[in-house]
Structures are given as C-alpha cells and as structure tokens.
Amino acid sequence: MHSALLKKLIIACLAMFAFAFALVPLYDVFCQVTGLNGKPSLEVAKASSRVDENRLVDVSFTTHAQQGAPFDVSAEQFKVTVKPGEVTKVAFSAANLSQQARVMQAIPSVSPGIASKYLHKMACFCFNQQPMKAGEKQDFELMFYVDTALPSEIEELTLSYTLFDITEQSQQVALEASQDEPTSMETSDE
C-alpha cells in the first residue's frame, strides 16, 4: 500500500538531484539573457555597421594573475577613449615568469556587469589557450568596439582579465586525445 507514494517520492528525489545539475546551464542562460554577472561572450564579433560620432566612452584594462599563475600581462595603455562602434586595437605585452613552459588562459570580465553584452571583441588572446615557453615574452592584440546601443548612463567601463595557469588541464586533454586506448585514468592521477 505504500509503494505508489514511495515511487513518487523517490522520483521527486531523483528529479531534484537532476535539477541541481540543470541549474548549471540555467544559470548561464539566465546570466546571458539578463546580461548579469559581467561575463562577456567568447565568440568572435563582427564589425559594427555604424559609428556614433557624438559620444565618448572610456574603456580601462586591468589584468591579474590567479594565485600561483606565473604570468604577467599588461595593456600598453591603461585607458582608451573610444566612440561607440569604432574598432579599437590595444596591444598587450605578456610574459611567462616561470622557468617552465606553461599554458595560459585569460578569462575576461566586464564591469559594470550590465555592460558586458555591449563590449564586442573581434580578436582577443582570451579566445584561445596561449602556450608560452619558459621565460618567453609575447605581444597580444585585442580588437574590440563598444556597441552603439550601450545605455547612455554608462560612460566608462572596465575590461578585466584574470590569468589562469591551465598547463595541467591542457596536457591531460592532449594526452587523452593522442591515445586511442583510454588509459586516461592513470594520467589524471598525476
């Protein structure tokens, strides 16, 4: 006499367990739709069709390395003033501070968060993993423009990069891809 109710309750439990994982894509979709969270898109943007000549927006750049990541990246100019729709190039100089080959991944974030969907990147070193040899110095270029639809109350925005050391993860991926025999369990232990 209990089994019908028991079945429903167990299904409810399993559904809630699945819901916890469903929260992950839901969260991303919610942030994308509302433009919250300052997470800019990592897709290559197309050039803007028009330029707003009557408006100026300040864009500043900051970078910081995640604890332990041996990288130093800085923009040549701390701040540029741009017209919405106008494509701007900014040079970044990057260095691997360690004595080993490392792989860097830069994750962008825009403040104020609501402005993140109005900042379009046509070229960015954050689109790819950046392998760097020991002590190597590299120059990167960022090509971006600010959307003409940027709300008028936003007069300045900041593009911040967090630098992560993903050497281990990318080695794992490379190893797993290179091996047909899935012995990846052993490599992931390292």
Binding site: A12, C13, L14, A15, M16, F17, A20, F21, L23
Partner: peptide, 9 residues
C-alpha cells in the same frame, strides 16, 4: 526531499 538532493549535486 526537495533540497537534500541539491546538496548531493
């Protein structure tokens, strides 16, 4: 029943 599975997740 509603939230302990979420913690498990």
């Amino acid at each position: 029943i509603a939230v302990m599975p979420v913690l498990a997740g």
